[in-house]
Design a protein around this nucleic acid. Structure first.
Lengths: 227, 227
DNA sequence: TTTTTGTATTATGTATTCAAAATAGGCAGA
DNA sequence: TCTGCCTATTTTGAATACATAATACAAAAA
């Protein structure tokens, strides 16, 4: 099973694997802001040579996850509140566009999938399973973006999202905020189901505004804890 | 004069120079869609080794300007009408946001600079100097984006813009469309000057819609000419 | 004790080498 | 002639080696 696919599948370029690996580590906070990416150490950890690693680092730099210091290597980009706010503003704009397009372009299958994820998310909320809730939540937003059918939009959103997810891992949703977020999702789903573009746009914008506040608060809190 | 600064200035990493060089070549149509990037040839042309070149190619791939074919190198991404339309839709969304933010955040100096560029553009229009007009036009849009003060927005727009500029180089504006574009710019400048965000948003959206039509028409024409 | 300077070490930047995959061309057989 | 296979060449992928810049540290001088 899968043998044929494996044979057919070309091995992915090493540098791509490395990009994914490092991106995950950064997003999950395994590599913390300001941490230096020591090439020798990472090479040993990943069991590769410097060439693909360095290619990967250049890619991560264009994605904004690491910062290149000439002749001094790369460090994980700091999570500044201003950058986060800017990123979320842009993502809001993209979500708004995606919502509009999704209302027009989403297939019934797309909507069914989003609905399924929504119920899955409700289950995690009921169980107070925060990590799984976040995962589902992310997936729902991503599916709405994807339902827009605009490949460039999808790609751009994905890239920006990586930076926000970094903050998510330190966020501790208050029960109150969590509950209202779920309610907002109910409305979003309803608007999408009835393909009510203006309403969906408004709901996504509001949802995002709350998210901004929540993420920034988490950042502040974290900064305070660090100090 | 400048000696101290020059001493202080660190040399830019080679791969960045290469990225800029290749990006320019692609945007200006020197490297045409589908063209293979032969590493050996490019190394000789640029007088560098393969390592920084390959790092640059990876970066261009994440920017979407080239496509990586595993074990078969990289080719310049094709200019597909659908991708172009998708890109412009996203840029429209970003321009809309930028317009809003610019109305709130732009300094009088920013506005003065945009106004100056506007008059410069009018001069080029009067002289029917298309290339210089395009340059000015691009610059005005970029300055509006920059006046938003949102660094992430600026960065994202820049990246998307590279792909659109490629099409621009093959576009031959009709006199009629040219004239109306200039009129639209007059209104945009007026709205920005009076910091009328809703009006600016609407004007930018309309301006972009016309641009989409123009760019797509140019693409079609070019595709037809190629066939 | 503090500062400075020279040296050793380490890390990064770039070039080169080695390996593997793809392409091109030729040859045999139908 | 055409087809299929095989080899030779080219090209990319990855690793290693070399060059250069940054850092750490120690010794000497103020």
């Amino acid at each position: 099973m899968g043998t044929i696919e494996n044979l057919r599948l070309k091995r992915r370029p090493l540098h791509e694997e490395v990009v994914d690996q490092l991106r995950d580590r950064i997003v999950q906070g395994d590599l913390t802001p300001g941490a230096r990416l020591n090439e020798r150490v990472l090479c040993e950890q990943l069991g590769i040579s410097r060439t693909p690693l360095r290619e990967a680092i250049k890619v991560l730099a264009t994605e904004g996850l690491v910062e290149l210091l000439p002749n001094r290597g790369a460090i994980v980009t700091a999570l500044k509140a201003e950058t986060m706010a800017d990123t979320l503003a842009v993502m809001g704009s993209l979500e708004s566009l995606a919502g509009e397009l999704a209302c027009a372009n989403a297939s019934e299958g797309d909507l069914a999938e989003i609905r399924a994820l929504h119920f899955e998310m409700l289950a995690h909320h009921a169980r107070r399973a925060l990590a799984e809730y976040f995962r589902c939540n992310q997936l729902i937003h991503l599916r709405i973006i994807e339902a827009s059918g605009n490949a460039v939009l999808i790609n751009t959103y994905r890239q920006l999202n990586a930076n926000v997810r970094r903050a998510r891992y330190m966020a501790n949703l208050s029960q109150e905020r969590w509950d209202s977020a779920v309610r907002e999702h109910e409305e979003i789903l309803a608007a999408l189901t009835s393909r009510d573009a203006p309403r969906l746009k408004r709901l996504l914008a509001e949802h995002l505004a709350h998210k901004v506040a929540s993420v920034l608060a988490a950042l502040e809190e974290n900064a305070a804890a660090a100090a």
